[in-house]
């Protein structure tokens, strides 16, 4: 290849590149304006954990310690005492160390009453790590703030505007598994 051809090829390559770059300038950037526009997350998305109460405000958790045993990272600490008036247990302490949690959702799988659920609140950034040592108040508060959560037993649940908890329509359930979830509904009622 002669020198002139080489020079011509180089010039042509540079010209092509610059034309491509120039065309790019007038196209819209696919940037997401995150803090202003919330991202659309899938219905089942393990961003954080929460502890759901019943609609009347009573505790749904039966303090069976299944989640504490299931946790591979051992971030769940539960203390309980026997209920002196009825059967079952009362909670003394229910802490999840969200700093060391790896969000595997094994606790959610293990929970027999679907009290501990995954929620979509991912905005956990903080200036103080101590605020992420979640205690029971924090977990309840998270559940109250959440509009939507998921557990394998009840599937995706929604909180209506007046605070009631409803089952999400089948199209919002993971994989549209409305039939599989039927026995879970019976347990609930």
């Amino acid at each position: 290849m002669s020198l002139l051809q080489e020079v011509w090829q180089a010039v042509k390559a540079i010209g092509t590149g610059m034309a491509t770059v120039h065309k790019r300038v007038y196209e819209e950037a696919p940037t997401e304006f995150y803090p202003y526009v919330k991202p659309e997350l899938p219905p089942v998305s393990v961003q954080s954990l929460a502890l759901v109460e019943n609609e009347d405000g009573s505790e749904r958790c039966i303090v069976c310690l299944q989640c504490e045993r299931a946790c591979p990272a051992q971030v769940i600490t539960i203390e309980r005492h026997r209920n002196p008036e009825g059967k079952g247990f009362l909670i003394d302490r229910f802490d999840i160390d969200l700093v060391n949690c790896m969000y595997c959702a094994a606790c959610v799988e293990a929970c027999p009453v679907s009290s501990i659920v995954t929620i979509q609140d991912f905005e956990m950034s903080t200036y103080d790590l101590q605020t992420l040592k979640a205690d029971i108040d924090f977990l309840h508060e998270q559940a109250r703030r959440a509009r939507q959560w998921y557990s394998p037993k009840f599937g995706v649940e929604l909180r209506t505007d007046d605070g009631r908890i409803e089952k999400a329509p089948p199209e919002m359930q993971p994989g549209g598994l409305a039939e599989i979830l039927k026995p879970a509904e019976e347990v609930d009622s």
Binding site: E123, T126, T131, D135, I136, D137, F138, E141, R145
Partner: peptide, 10 residues
């Protein structure tokens, strides 16, 4: 129980 501040807009 320790109160945990949850800023409205973190």
């Amino acid at each position: 129980m320790r109160p945990i501040p949850i800023p409205e807009d973190r």
